[in-house]
Amino acid sequence: MNYPRTSKAISLAWTGASGAPYGIKLLQCLLSADYQVFLMISSAARVVLAAEHGLQLSANGEKAQQQLLQLFEQRGIAVSGSLHVLGKDEWFSPPASGSAAPKQMIICPCSTGTLAAVATGMSNSLLERAADVVIKERGQLILVPRETPFSAIHLEHMLSLSRLGATIMPAAPGFYHSPKSVEDLVDFMVARILDHLGIEHVLTQRWGYDKHHADVGDK
């Protein structure tokens, strides 16, 4: 398959950690910001999507792509970017090669198994290879692990990746913005990811720009 080239391309991966709503909202924001998104979904991620989001996502890339776009359409969300859902063996897709891969990639949510595979350069699937490519090309890799507690093994893998230049952003939303719903917590985490990607958003109030937050230090 031929993919149109654009400067606004990004790789996104969903794996089997809890936190499917983070991944869905992040995809929505990227497409709304007119990005070309190469989405990789592990088989475990599909199980989590069904359990946490009620979404029975097809293992067929084209069908999954249509399902996701229909989901946003049903929610009345306009997306201007393009979506490509890739299978684990699509080795001729852009994310597999340093000469074509987007310079930015996010794994959200990131399972500890994926964390280990990326930290040790396993590259047994397109998802793992895509992350390896971003690291070797000195791009921007963000991993959003969702596990608790972390074992020494998990922490060592995170430290190894951090030393390689990756950004580790555990799914740990704050509460200082007085969240009223689960969606508020999801938005908080996705907003922090978008900040690191340099993508403008209005998902949450920024610290110091809201009077209530500014007054906290005076008490």
Rank of each mutant, 00 (worst) to 15 (best):
G16D: 01
G16H: 00
A17C: 09
A17E: 00
S18I: 12
S18W: 06
G19C: 02
G19M: 07
G19P: 06
G19K: 07
A20P: 03
A20D: 00
A20I: 04
Y22W: 10
G23K: 02
G23V: 01
I24F: 08
I24E: 04
K25D: 02
K25F: 01
L26P: 03
L26C: 10
L26Q: 05
L27A: 00
Q28E: 15
Q28I: 12
Q28C: 07
C29F: 09
C29R: 09
C29Y: 04
L30K: 04
L31M: 09
L31Q: 02
L31C: 06
S32H: 13
S32A: 15
S32W: 05
A33G: 07
A33R: 12
A33L: 06
D34N: 15
D34G: 04
Q36V: 03
Q36G: 01
Q36K: 12
Q36T: 13
Q36E: 13
V37R: 00
V37I: 07
V37M: 04
F38T: 03
F38D: 02
L39N: 00
L39D: 01
M40Y: 07
M40T: 10
M40E: 10
M40S: 08
I41Q: 01
S42G: 09
S42K: 01
S43F: 07
S43E: 14
A44T: 12
A45V: 12
A45E: 05
A45L: 11
A45G: 10
R46F: 01
V47Y: 09
V47D: 13
L49M: 14
L49K: 07
A51P: 05
A51M: 15
E52T: 07
H53D: 11
G54K: 10
G54Y: 05
L55M: 13
Q56F: 15
S58A: 13
S58I: 02
A59Q: 15
N60K: 13
G61C: 10
G61Q: 01
G61D: 09
G61F: 11
A64M: 05
A64N: 06
A64E: 11
A64C: 11
Q65T: 06
Q65A: 10
Q66N: 07
Q66K: 15
L68H: 03
L68F: 06
L68G: 08
L69D: 00
Q70T: 14
L71N: 01
F72E: 05
E73Q: 15
R75W: 13
R75N: 11
G76K: 03
I77Q: 11
I77K: 12
A78M: 12
A78Y: 08
V79A: 04
V79R: 03
